[in-house]
C-alpha cells in the first residue's frame, strides 16, 4: 500500500457542501403576501390621492399651503396619507431589500446597504408621521392670504 504515483495531490474540488444556515419561517411568506396586498391598496390610495389633488375642481392650480393644511385638518385625510406613507415605505423598503439580497453577493456589502436602507426608512417614516399629526394649519403670525379657510371660522 505504498505506491503513490505522484507526490502532488490535488484537493478534491467536491468539498462537502452545506447550506450556510437554515432560515425557515413565515417571514418571507408574509412579506411576499404583503407586497402584493399593499400593492393593491397603494394603487387605490395613490390614485385616490392623485385624483383629489389634481383632477377635482381647479386641479393642480389649487394646491398651496392652504390646500394641504385644509386637508390635514380632516382625520379622514390624515389616516389616508398616513396609510399611504406607511404602506409605500414598507412596500418600497421591502422591494429594495429584495433587490439587495438578489444582487449583493457579499455579506458585508449586503449588511451595509441594508443598514442604510433601514435607516432611511426609519427617518422618513418617523418624520412623515410626525408631520401628519403635528401639522399646524393655522400658524400664528402667518400671512392670512396663505391660510386655509378653516383658520377663519
Amino acid at each position: 500500500m505504498t505506491t503513490t504515483p505522484s507526490a502532488q495531490v490535488i484537493p478534491s474540488p467536491r468539498d462537502p457542501y452545506a447550506r450556510r444556515k437554515t432560515t425557515r419561517g413565515n417571514y418571507e411568506l408574509y412579506s411576499w403576501v404583503f407586497m402584493r396586498a399593499s400593492g393593491v391598496l397603494l394603487i387605490v390610495l395613490i390614485f385616490g390621492h392623485l385624483f383629489v389633488n389634481l383632477m377635482v375642481g381647479e386641479g393642480v392650480h389649487r394646491i398651496d399651503f392652504a390646500f394641504v393644511g385644509g386637508k390635514w385638518t380632516s382625520p379622514f385625510w390624515q389616516v389616508w396619507d398616513l396609510l399611504m406613507l406607511w404602506l409605500a415605505m414598507f412596500h418600497g423598503t421591502n422591494g429594495v431589500r429584495t433587490i439587495i439580497n438578489d444582487y449583493a453577493s457579499r455579506d458585508l456589502t449586503r449588511g451595509i446597504l441594508k443598514t442604510l436602507l433601514y435607516l432611511a426608512f426609519v427617518i422618513t417614516v418617523a418624520l412623515g408621521t410626525l408631520v401628519i399629526f403635528t401639522f399646524e394649519p393655522c400658524p400664528a403670525n402667518a400671512d392670512p392670504a396663505l391660510l386655509a379657510s378653516i383658520c377663519f371660522e
Binding site: 500500500m1 505506491t3 504515483p5 495531490v9 490535488i10 484537493p11 478534491s12 474540488p13 467536491r14
Partner: peptide, 10 residues
C-alpha cells in the same frame, strides 16, 4: 480512479 482529482482509490 477519481476523475476529478486523478487519484487512485482502493
Amino acid at each position: 480512479y477519481d476523475l476529478a482529482t486523478g487519484e487512485i482509490h482502493v
